[in-house]
């Protein structure tokens, strides 16, 4: 039993043999990484035309969008520790989508 630690009997009994929570946790990590790549490219984009007050504000918003996604992913990853994790809430899903759309919009605004 890879996950059975002896002290937590219920957890061992309820362990999903398909490792669904673990796969979902890794999916959130992959998505956070993808978000980091997109955010770095967006940040590079804002500084492309030189550093002024507007580009700094946009850069701050890009970083904020990534941090928001990181926080969402972190919360969801922690929820995956439960033996039977609750379903994702539509609000969290909408927030994750909003981060992606925000990155696209911020990038589009800084195209030269």
């Amino acid at each position: 039993m890879p996950e059975g630690n002896g002290t937590d009997g219920s957890r061992t009994r309820d362990r999903d043999p398909g490792l669904q929570p673990e796969r979902t946790r890794l999916a959130w990590r992959r998505t956070t990484l993808a978000c980091a790549v997109a955010a770095s490219l967006a940040g590079r984009q804002t500084l492309h035309s030189g550093i002024d007050s507007v580009s700094l504000v946009v850069l701050a918003l890009v970083v904020l969008a990534w941090l928001a996604f990181l926080a969402l992913a972190h919360r969801r990853i922690r929820a995956m520790h439960a033996p039977r994790p609750p379903a994702l809430s539509p609000r969290a899903a909408a927030a994750a989508v909003a981060c992606t759309v925000a990155l696209a919009a911020l990038g589009a605004a800084t195209l030269r």
Partner: peptide, 8 residues
């Protein structure tokens, strides 16, 4: 996100 990154 890959599409957005591709745009940049």
């Amino acid at each position: 996100m890959a599409l957005v990154g591709g745009g940049f």
